[in-house]
Computed example of a mutant assay.
Amino acid sequence: MLNLSLLKAICEAPGVSGFERRIRELVLREVKSLADEVKVDNMGNVIAIMKGRVPKRVMVAAHMDEIGFIVNHIDEKGFLRFLPLGGFDPKTLTAQRVIIHGRKDVIGVLGCKPIHIMKPEERKQVIPISEYFVDTGMTKEDVEKWIRIGDPISRERELIEIGDCVTSKSLDNRVSVFILIETLRRLKDQDLPYDLYATFTVQEEVGLRGAIGSVGHIDPDFGFGLDVTIAYDVPGSSAHESVTSLGEGAAIKILDGSVISDYRMVNYLKEVAKADGIKTQMELLPAGGTDTAAIQRYGNKGAIAGAISTPLRNMHQSIEMAHQEDIEHTINLLAAGIGRLDTYDWDFSGQHGQGEHQDAGKSASGGYDWL
């Protein structure tokens, strides 16, 4: 059974891009007893290190930040204007509650022009984010006691169970923060083959910034991105558009808009899942990207990198949805994948061509030839 109370706390903690302090404090409390060493780098990434038998480095990245806003203007009536931090789907913002994190937390409501006074052509258009404002119900004088230009704004939503799923703000990517913490808990007493660097990154939603910084000093040999992906399995979708579906298991990333996963890693994860009976599906996401891209290309020598994703409906909207079984399968696959990395032959010197790698036989070392 999933620890839903922990997942709830993680999802509901504020931490928009660049302002991750509260979620970082929660992560630090959870991982300090699970790892051999825990540190925070200069950018604010949390790195929990578990020592393995061999000093090769495995990096797993799950970003802590959530999409949100930042105050950039307070008008004469006390209404707030803002800029987005990360990509929002603006059609979902009308009349949503938010929290402005100033000298104290202040609840506000996102407002825009009422539909009753819109022109006919305006009613047919998606309202741009620039036309929204935050209404706190206070005068400018009262607003300025608590709120300043540059204060971050997060969504005000709680996590609840719904059917076999959970819904909340910020499941992108707090569900992966939860998965990584639970994976550390599962690996705590295991004899790991390589050093594990479980990295909870900052500022992913504005350009993978934390991951790029952390990869530079970790310099991993292997890497796993841990994020969500689109579950477009709803009415109106076509089979070839779905990317993933809720309830169909952990998603093994083949590619997205920023990375092509190392085919050796893709097939390694498929083999691990098959051996352990872990339910999986393949992910090919036409646009968007994750920390996997940073892991793969920003170390000194590059990394053998792939990703495990959790299917998500309503991504980058006011509330998102994930299936509890998919979360469990992702924990299972990540833990097993980290624990067996030394059982495979990762060299490019095998006998098989790239098109034949799925049928590669065992090598003399007991692993697989993947080329």
Rank of each mutant, 00 (worst) to 15 (best):
P193F: 15
E158K: 14
I117T: 15
A198R: 07
E30T: 04
E325A: 10
S33C: 09
I295M: 10
A239T: 14
V27Y: 04
A307H: 05
K301E: 13
G249P: 11
Y344C: 02
Q324V: 12
D256S: 11
A251V: 07
L284F: 15
G299L: 06
G350E: 08
E325R: 12
T94L: 14
I47A: 03
K32L: 11
E20R: 01
Y132M: 00
E204Y: 11
E241W: 09
T201H: 12
Y344Q: 12
D342E: 14
D291S: 13
Y132G: 04
F133I: 07
K8P: 12
G361V: 11
S237Q: 06
T343V: 04
A273H: 02
E12M: 13
G150P: 10
I99K: 14
F222V: 05
V143A: 10
G223E: 02
V60K: 02
V166K: 05
H316I: 01
P128V: 02
T292N: 02
E241L: 12
K188P: 11
P120S: 14
I149M: 13
I127E: 01
E320R: 00
S318A: 10
L159V: 06
L334F: 07
G355W: 11
G339W: 00
N45S: 10
T139H: 03
Y194S: 07
L83H: 01
E248P: 03
L312I: 10
P128F: 00
E122V: 03
T244H: 06
V126I: 14
G15V: 06
F19V: 03
Y132H: 00
W370T: 03
F222K: 02
R174W: 09
G44W: 07
L6Y: 04
I252Q: 08
L4C: 10
S33Y: 11
L34F: 07
D151I: 05
F348M: 13
I100Q: 03
I100A: 07
T330L: 09
V206I: 15
V215A: 07
G111T: 02
M59K: 05
L226K: 03
G207C: 09
P152K: 05
I308K: 03
V98Q: 00
D142P: 00
A35L: 03
L80K: 08
G249R: 10
S261C: 15
L80Y: 03
L208F: 08
G108E: 00
E158H: 06
K104A: 09
D105K: 01
F133H: 09
R148E: 15
A322V: 11
A293W: 04
I10Y: 07
P286T: 03
E156M: 04
K124R: 15
T292W: 04
I147V: 15
E325S: 14
A13W: 01
E356I: 03
P193Y: 15
R157W: 02
V106H: 03
T94H: 07
T292K: 07
E241I: 05
G299I: 04
E283C: 14
D345E: 12
P193M: 15
F88Q: 12
E205G: 09
T167R: 14
W146T: 04
N42D: 12
K77V: 05
E271R: 15
I100Y: 00
L110D: 02
Y298G: 01
L85Q: 01
W370Q: 05
V215D: 00
A48V: 06
